[in-house]
Design a protein around this nucleic acid. Sequence first.
RNA 1: GCGCCCGUAGCUCAGCUGGAUAGAGCGCUGCCCUCCGAAGGCAGAGGCCGGGGGUUCGAAUCCCUCCGGGCGCGCCA
Length: 559
Amino acid sequence: MPTPEEALVSIDRVLRDAARARYGVTDLTVTFEAPRRPEFGDFATNLAFGLAKAARSAPQQIAERLLDDAIASRPEIAALVVDAQATAGFINLRLAPGCWQRVIERALADGSRYGESPRNGQRISLEFGSANPTGPLVVVQGRTLSIGATLAAAFHACGYDVFTEWIINDAGGQVETLARSLYARYRQIADPSFPFPEAGYPGEYLLPIAASLREEFGAAYDAADESIWLPLFGTRGRDRLVAEQQRTVERFGIHYDLWQSERELHESGKVLAGIERLRELGLTYENEGALYFRATQFGDDKDRVLVKSDGKPTYYCADVAYHYEKLKRADRVIDLLGPDHHGYIERLRGIATAFGYEGRLDVAIAQQVTLLRGGEQVSMSKRAGEIITLDTILDEVGVDAARFFFAMLATETPLAFDLKLATEQSTENPVYYVQYGHARIASVLRNADAAELALARRGEHLAPLAHPSEIALMHRIEDYPHVLQSVVSSLSPHRLARYARDIAADFHAFYGECRILAENRDDRLARLALAAATQHVLANALRVLGVSAPESMDRLAAD
RNA sequence: GCGCCCGUAGCUCAGCUGGAUAGAGCGCUGCCCUCCGAAGGCAGAGGCCGGGGGUUCGAAUCCCUCCGGGCGCGCCA
């Protein structure tokens, strides 16, 4: 018995043969899709609509004839198809359960690797989540982190070598602001009347850092000149805050291969090298003392400043150099940026094209998160002081719920995130539904006879699987590798989160319809195999999402 | 003014390259544990898919336009 994919290849062939024989149409593409409504079968094709004009007849009539010519009259195809109908111009097919059972065989054989693709040697550089080193990570960054990390894991599962990078924006004026704010806090420990800078960072998170600097330095810098303390406090503050950001990221279950300091890019000469390369290419010019990049040659609105008239390079300049580095060492570079970077996309693409890497850079924008609390908008400006840190959310809802929730939404959709719902009703988070599915299977498998379960896992006793809820679940399992591919090809990790929910729903429905530990031994073996296969897929999907797959969960108390 | 994103059920959101009666969760109304975990299942109510044109056998999906909401348009980062 062929797999569903193989069966569709055969059916595709006979349908095209039939179309050629009857209507003389040769350049025909047949696409199959799973219809929304299960009563329309496992797969449907709309090819009769495309033929209608050339064949000069109604789609429904064409569908009926193709069905007669291709499916019914070919015994080898008829054996794969238990039901085939032409309705409203569509050809609806129901595959033999044996095709679906092949999927379970495969899932059981591959286990924790099911859905993965072989290594393909392609190198991906993925940058996401980067932040100023001037404060703790906030809730909104949880979204970028979650999306980026899931994307990275999906690329890895699809056979790519993924290199994840974070850029520390530590070369601009904001580090000076940090230094002044921190210095003021340091002085205030000894002299509470010491003025806090007007545009400083008022957050409480600087207080413990100031305290530890006081402990280390004593009063050593109270009378020091600004030229002495400014770089020192800037560097110390950056190091402490980056370390805290790294702790939060790690706690969120995310690993970075590189934490790239922007300052380091300058100090190592890489920025100069990047500018030099552009100069060689004839893509720079000077105007009023500043150095410009000819961005308009690459579709940008205006040329962009690389080096300001005061001799200091811009942030963009560092990014030019950084992207030059990334493009040289990766086959494909992906940036996942925040919503305030729309205007930046063309500029980045310009870099790639200028350096001769056109089409190798993708920039995705994760849209804004608006914070609400009980329907009221929460202001999130750092200057106003009220910041909701990512750690706060992790404390309240846990890593699993946060990872799943943020990955669940399409990247380009703005999100209204209600803190009250997230914290008070965390048990309503769909992640628990998915995890419960996994735990429920684990529980059933524990109740099974160990020897029998081992036998079932060999995937040799699947023949009884034919109930609609069993077919639906097998179909869903078959879909998993395609979902992973689609996550990667469209940079849409939310599809995986949706899929996890869907397969959990299919399992729960199957569980309600069919008793897994059935009286009949054949049924029992087959259903144990299906449950075990489902468990693998759930665990694999959750792993990519960065969510744990528990063997058991605490029962909720009855109301 | 120009550019990007969004507008789908009371709320939060799916709907992949155009397909059949537009889906899910939460919330709401009913059922279902002498049986593998009720954080579950089944059934139901709830929609001019922002408005208007167009393309198509067929449009939530593509094109144009208008209306709403958000965000960008620095020698800031």
